[in-house]
């Protein structure tokens, strides 16, 4: 049994299945984070007092994290471009850096959380920290998910390059779309939580 259009493009839509699938998934993710952003805005406008992000949170650390995540997004797209140019070695390198950047992001995040807990700032402290921990935590989970997928395609999953190169390129493209989305969410989270 062969499912059509797993690799080759559909004549009408011009897409292969997984790409349609990932975009639909990302659409649902837009609604998920959209609902959380809505909640954040409503809680903030409704609150009698709400601290500025820069009063409570560590901006330099978050800026570094922003740079790290954007960099990982670039290396992700470069790893895809390398495969398109049939350069597997470069792919390995760029994908490796992507995974590494993801891990650095998490480590920095862990330090940030640790500092908050030391100062007895917990999700239950007030709704500012509740929002902060929920949004960054959920984003962190997405980062972890992305790292697992990317690490798999860097390691054991990359065997597919030898057997079905086109399918492998597709997989990297799809994984990339997810990873860029995670980056995109952070691009909005960073100013709205830290800088405002």
């Amino acid at each position: 049994m062969q499912i059509p259009h797993t690799i080759e493009h559909h004549p009408e839509t011009g897409l292969y299945n997984a790409k349609v699938g990932i975009w639909l998934f990302l659409a649902s993710e837009v609604m998920l984070f959209g609902a959380l952003f809505t909640s954040y805005i409503l809680l903030r406008i409704g609150a009698p007092t709400w601290p500025h992000g820069w009063e409570e949170l560590n901006i330099p650390l978050a800026t570094v994290n922003t740079v790290v995540l954007i960099a990982s997004s670039v290396t992700m797209v470069m790893s895809w471009a390398s495969l398109m140019m049939k350069d597997f070695k470069k792919y390995k390198m760029y994908m490796g850096i992507t995974v590494l950047c993801g891990l650095i992001f998490l480590v920095i995040k862990a330090f940030e959380y640790g500092a908050k807990f030391e100062h007895h700032h917990f999700p239950s402290t007030n709704n500012f920290f509740a929002t902060y921990f929920t949004l960054t935590g959920l984003h962190g989970l997405h980062v972890i998910g992305g790292i697992i997928v990317n690490a798999y395609f860097w390691g054991p999953g990359s065997k597919m390059w030898k057997t079905e190169p086109q399918r492998f390129i597709n997989r990297i493209e799809v994984a990339g779309l997810y990873w860029h989305f995670v980056d995109l969410v952070w691009i909005f989270l960073f100013p709205s939580l830290y800088l405002l």
């Binding site: 011009g14 997004s73 779309l177 860029h180 980056d183 995109l184 691009i187 100013p191 709205s192």
Partner: peptide
């Protein structure tokens, strides 16, 4: 802040995610 974030987000979506030249189905969705 949101203006800058929107520009950054659009850049990521347009170039890294290739939305600048994508198929109709995805645009509609």
């Amino acid at each position: 802040a949101l203006f800058i974030a929107t520009i950054k987000g659009s850049l990521v979506a347009a170039y890294f995610m290739h939305l600048i030249s994508e198929k109709k189905v995805i645009y509609i969705t």
